[in-house]
């Protein structure tokens, strides 16, 4: 690299697969002139008594596709005193829909009503309590996987039995959410350093509006209401970088639906005109510089 910034803070990026987003982030660091070491989390064997290999980094960006890898690595690194982006507690809150719901409700951030059960019979009660149609989701998972709209009791019984019989232990947590009759789209706001930087609307004829399921994205303006709500939502999960999914409820207005700690943005840079990876990189560099200053002050 020829344009390396003098005295650049040392950073690393953890990954399990190099998707387009990881390439875009690495390119952003290169264009800024700050070197960053890309490390495959799967290749690591952490010695919990030996922080030395990691203390040379002032910040580590976790971009592991696997949640298990993310949580494992960030817990260990934070134990070593290494600043992780995002922090482990942010990953824990964002990655688990139940934890997200609890954090949002405690903070008074409007979110769809949720009922949870850990037994098949109770799950049916939870669905009936929410009312039909209801939405049954795995507490952990992305891209709309295994999200089911339950229109009646017959469907509820079938889906609950399938989950209980065929699913993993995690599928034994029945997370039932009220169905929001949204206007053919949901909203996603990208928040970096607590500030909303870009927003898209995801449209689909299907009620699931994930772009991974074929929804199309278009850039939208961040209104004052939307921005304020997303600042509040981001602060509940302590994330440095987070994508917030929102639903427009005809009765209750904007509701925060999900929090995403390892956001994908490949289709949102052009549609919003915002250089999302560069803003993420710049924020990570600011954090790393601040951590370096703290370390220097302690010496």
């Amino acid at each position: 690299m020829n344009n390396t910034v003098p005295d650049a803070p040392r950073l690393a990026l953890l990954y399990t697969r190099v998707r387009v987003e990881e390439r875009m982030l690495l390119d952003a660091f290169e264009s800024i002139g700050v070197p960053i070491e890309a490390i495959d989390t799967r290749s690591l064997a952490f010695d919990t008594t030996d922080p030395e290999p990691w203390t040379r980094f002032y910040a580590v960006i976790d971009r592991s596709l696997s949640l298990t890898c993310s949580i494992t690595a960030t817990r260990i690194l934070e134990g070593f005193g290494v600043r992780c982006i995002n922090p482990a507690r942010a990953i824990e809150v964002c990655s688990d829909k139940l934890a997200s719901t609890i954090a949002l409700e405690r903070a008074g951030v409007p979110t769809p009503r949720v009922c949870v059960a850990v037994d098949e019979e109770s799950a049916l009660l939870a669905v009936e309590s929410i009312g039909y149609p209801a939405v049954l989701k795995p507490t952990i998972g992305s891209w709309g996987r295994l999200v089911a709209r339950v229109n009646d009791r017959d469907a509820a019984e079938a889906i609950i039995e399938h989950r209980a019989t065929l699913g993993s232990a995690q599928q034994g947590v029945f997370y039932v959410q009220e169905f929001i009759d949204k206007p053919g789209r949901d909203l996603r706001v990208f928040v970096v350093g607590g500030e909303p930087i870009a927003a898209i609307a995801r449209r689909s004829a299907h009620w699931v509006t994930n772009t991974a399921r074929g929804a199309t994205a278009e850039g939208i303006a961040i209104t004052e209401e939307l921005g304020d709500l997303c600042r509040r939502a981001a602060s509940t999960c302590h994330a440095d970088v987070v994508a917030i999914d929102l639903l427009e409820c005809p009765r209750r207005g904007l509701l925060v639906n999900e929090l995403n700690h390892s956001m994908e943005f490949r289709n949102s840079v052009q549609t919003t005109g915002v250089d999302i990876p560069r803003l993420v990189a710049e924020h990570a560099i600011r954090i790393a510089r601040a951590c370096r200053a703290e370390v220097a002050a302690c010496r």
């Binding site: 949640l67 795995p138 995690q170 994908e264």
Partner: peptide, 8 residues
């Protein structure tokens, strides 16, 4: 293939 704990 996509695994259970993969995602955003």
């Amino acid at each position: 293939e996509v695994e259970e704990d993969w995602g955003e």
